[in-house]
Design a protein around this nucleic acid. Structure first.
Lengths: 184, 184
DNA sequence: CTCTATTTTAGTATCTGGTATTAAAGTATA
DNA sequence: TATACTTTAATACCAGATACTAAAATAGAG
């Protein structure tokens, strides 16, 4: 049997580190009122890596994400684009896009992909979405690749009506009609 | 005068570290074909901190962002919520949300705020957007605070029709009608 | 070519935040 | 009281540095 003091302390230790992964063993030892050796034993028992490795992980994890999310200016990878005519974009549903309880992608990511693609079809410096009528046909899951195809269905002056259909394999999961304004 | 070898090497050093901040002095010394002491002198001259501090910075920088972006699960700050009835959310348009040439927020952020709010009104573990009819009334600019108000306008079984109106001050900038499904 | 200044390398002591290991206390508990 | 679990201690070692001193290599000017 594990003594209640130990398991309680280990729980606390986890909570502290979740709240602040930048704590050293020394600081933890003071916070929990035990020796540094006990902290190391606990970490070992809970297989929590040392500070430097924790930092490395956080840093690495974010390093990929920084460029992934800050460049999330455009959601989805443009794989084909004929400005003024049609375009295709692919989006692989990553973990950040999903509701954490389920593995379902949040609707606005699917929308964002379609919106980005629609706007990029318009061949001007700036284009803005005016109205949109959209419909999510079925949930999209973590890991699935969403292929969005867009084409301009009508054009008048600076107004474009663009239709976007997003599919996973051959199944349509999203459809939308966007009214986009081009701005000189 | 600084020897050309030195300034060239320092430029390279910067580029290497920009590309990969995880490099140790030792690795840099090998890459640049000089001794480790030279690398340290160069770092000192360029006031580049040691590996561990660089990692700390990257990790810290991203730690703020992790909670800002990974919790970007919900876009906008919920300021009022009566589940099953109505809710209010505020979103301040930050730089990342804008098109970089102009200062106009990209439509999908405005949509995301509304979508998050609509979904959160439904008082179940998981809720998904089925269809939506939305309209962007005018562009929203960097720094503006968007206040989205949502209410359930109809309900039948597990289907909810939710209307969202987003305003900047007293001006309506977005309206949307969402059909949301609750999932047990 | 020589003298001087800059640049580079070497070496040593020290620090932090650990790992790994062995051993000895302290504490419960049957 | 004997046994098992838990905690602390002590020691040797490592990576990746700082800080400092000093010597070698190289460049440039007269």
């Amino acid at each position: 049997m594990m003594s209640p003091g130990k398991s309680k302390r280990q729980e606390l230790l986890c909570r502290y580190l979740e709240g602040n992964p930048f704590l050293t063993d020394n600081e933890l030892a003071h916070m929990l009122g035990v020796s540094i050796q006990t902290i190391r034993l606990d970490r070992w028992g809970l297989s929590i890596p040392e500070l430097r490795k924790r930092l490395r992980e956080v840093a690495k994890g974010s390093y990929g994400q920084v460029s992934a999310l800050q460049k999330e200016e455009w959601i989805g990878d443009l794989v084909d684009l004929e400005p003024g005519r049609q375009g295709v974009s692919i989006l692989e549903v990553s973990e950040e896009m999903t509701l954490n309880s389920t593995k379902v992608a949040r609707g606005h990511y699917i929308f964002a992909q379609a919106n980005c693609l629609a706007v990029s079809l318009v061949n001007t410096k700036v284009a803005l979405t005016g109205t949109a009528k959209i419909s999510f046909k079925r949930p999209v899951y973590y890991g699935e690749k969403v292929i969005a195809r867009a084409f301009i269905s009508r054009k008048k002056d600076n107004k474009f009506i663009i239709r976007v259909t997003s599919k996973v394999r051959d199944e349509t999961i999203f459809q939308g009609k966007f009214l986009v304004f081009a701005i000189a």
